[in-house]
């Protein structure tokens, strides 16, 4: 493989995987023929056209689905992000108590129930992407049971009822939203992974170097990325708004229950509402209109 061909193949990453499988070799052949002899890299206009063409092909992927189907997939991604972060929280509790057995975790349960709840929640999220309906149902029910067990065992020492109920609601939503003919894109699992890593990574890195704004910076990057992607695909932004709402509503309900006067004063809910309005408006334009 020549240097030129290797560079042309790198450019094809702009296209969705299914498109690359179907047309990748054909595009490479045309690109190699169209590039003047002796050049080691494609022409600038070819590079730009391939990147723009790839983004257009990505945007066209979900335009054959209805608004309802796209909204369902976006909400599934939001629920998966919420459950992924909940799982990371349980696993963090387990690791924390494992490293310092005498210290109580900052929040949530500790020990083996936490490990079980964390792993089962992750399995339910993976099954929603990769598994059949029976597998989704089985893992989600097992995860729900583990969350209830942890919640009940923790109830004696005080716990966040809103967060606990929200996790159960998300497990139920996972069963309802997943397992339909339209499956979420596999690439979205990377997005779940990055978002789950965002709050954990800074804690890990800060054991070695102090970098105070790393966590907030990562979250901000993900937010800006999802909003910037709205023109191509509005679904990640809807997913992020769903997650922010799931994050904000339990806190607001708990504040309401305790009689706090500023219970509605929640920036996450406001950001979620603005992103959701913008993204759903774009999603309606990007989806097929059913006759």
């Amino acid at each position: 493989m020549t240097k030129l061909e290797r560079r042309c193949r790198v450019l094809l990453v702009a296209y969705p995987a299914a498109y690359r499988r179907d047309r990748g070799e054909e595009i490479i052949a045309t690109l190699l023929e169209a590039t003047p002899e002796g050049r080691k890299r494609p022409l600038i206009r070819d590079i730009l056209a391939l990147v723009v063409g790839g983004l257009k092909a990505r945007a066209a992927q979900h335009r054959r689905l209805s608004t309802a189907a796209n909204l369902r997939l976006a909400m599934l991604l939001g629920v998966a992000i919420y459950l992924g972060l909940a799982a990371a929280g349980y696993l963090d509790d387990f690791v924390y108590t494992g490293i310092r057995p005498l210290a109580a975790p900052l929040f949530g349960p500790s020990g083996w129930p936490a490990l079980l709840a964390g792993l089962l929640l992750l399995a339910a999220v993976l099954a929603a992407w990769l598994g059949r309906r029976a597998a989704i149902m089985a893992t989600a029910l097992a995860a729900g049971a583990a969350v209830i067990y942890v919640g009940l065992s923790e109830a004696a020492v005080g716990f966040s009822l809103g967060r606990f109920l929200c996790q159960l609601l998300c497990v139920a939503a996972l069963i309802l939203l997943a397992g339909r003919p339209e499956r979420p894109a596999r690439a979205w699992l990377w997005l779940v992974g990055v978002i789950v890593a965002a709050p954990i990574l800074p804690g890990f890195i800060q054991r070695f170097i102090y970098w105070p704004y790393l966590g907030a910076g990562l979250v901000l990057c993900v937010l800006i990325g999802a909003v910037a992607w709205i023109g191509i695909d509005a679904r990640p932004a809807v997913a992020l708004a769903t997650y922010l709402m799931l994050f904000a509503v339990p806190v607001m309900l708990e504040n309401l229950a305790t009689g706090a006067s500023n219970w509605f004063d929640n920036p996450s809910a406001l950001v979620a509402a603005v992103i959701a309005a913008l993204a759903i408006w774009r999603l309606r334009r990007q989806s097929v209109r059913l006759q």
């Binding site: 595009i27 045309t30 022409l43 206009r45 990147v51 063409g53 790839g54 092909a57 066209a60």
Partner: peptide
Amino acid sequence: VRLATGTLYTALD
């Protein structure tokens, strides 16, 4: 009209 490869395949699609 000097078509770039990416433009051609977008148009063909």
